[in-house]
């Protein structure tokens, strides 16, 4: 797998749902770019847009919310709430001149190791392409 150490991605993963999937990816030795860093939170609808913007300000190229989706142990409104967070963050990113495509969200269930790996590889490629176009 080709990696680009410049394309750093911050993943907000959730302790009960997506973090086990990311662990499972490692357990199964499924490789994804090492420039992907994970920070876990209780629920994807707890991510503050200011944290996302802070990550961009500090130099992350992309932010990925590994959302609980319908599996959220806290409630059915999680998907809508997380979507609202992304919407709000996208607006603030636009206002700051940050391409909204640099923030992605997808539901990653506790067994979705393969899906997570695919998301990370495709997101890394998309960010690399964006960087190439900018250059």
């Amino acid at each position: 797998m080709k990696t680009n150490i410049q394309s750093k991605i911050l993943v907000f993963s959730t302790e009960k749902i997506s973090d086990p999937a990311i662990d499972l990816a490692g357990l199964l030795k499924k490789h994804y770019p090492p420039s992907v860093y994970t920070i876990n939170v209780p629920c994807s609808s707890s991510v503050k847009p200011k944290w996302i913007l802070h990550a961009f300000d500090k130099g992350f190229d992309g932010v990925f919310i590994a959302a609980d989706g319908t599996d959220c142990p806290y409630g059915e409104t999680c998907s809508d709430n997380t979507a609202n967070i992304v919407k709000q963050a996208h607006q603030e990113m636009k206002a700051r001149g940050i391409d909204p495509a640099r923030l992605k969200m997808a539901a990653i269930c506790s067994v979705c190791a393969e899906s997570f790996v695919k998301q990370m590889i495709s997101f890394t490629k998309a960010l690399e392409n964006e960087q190439k176009q900018e250059n």
């Binding site: 990696t3 662990d23 490692g26 490789h31 090492p34 860093y37 994970t38």
Partner: peptide
């Protein structure tokens, strides 16, 4: 800090980068 499932095992194909990631984590 998880440097096994989310680092050494996931990036066994890139040991140098895995070490950098471990330092960051």
């Amino acid at each position: 800090v998880n440097i096994r499932e989310q680092d050494s095992w996931a990036h066994s194909d890139h040991p140098a980068e895995a070490t950098l990631k471990a330092i960051g984590l």
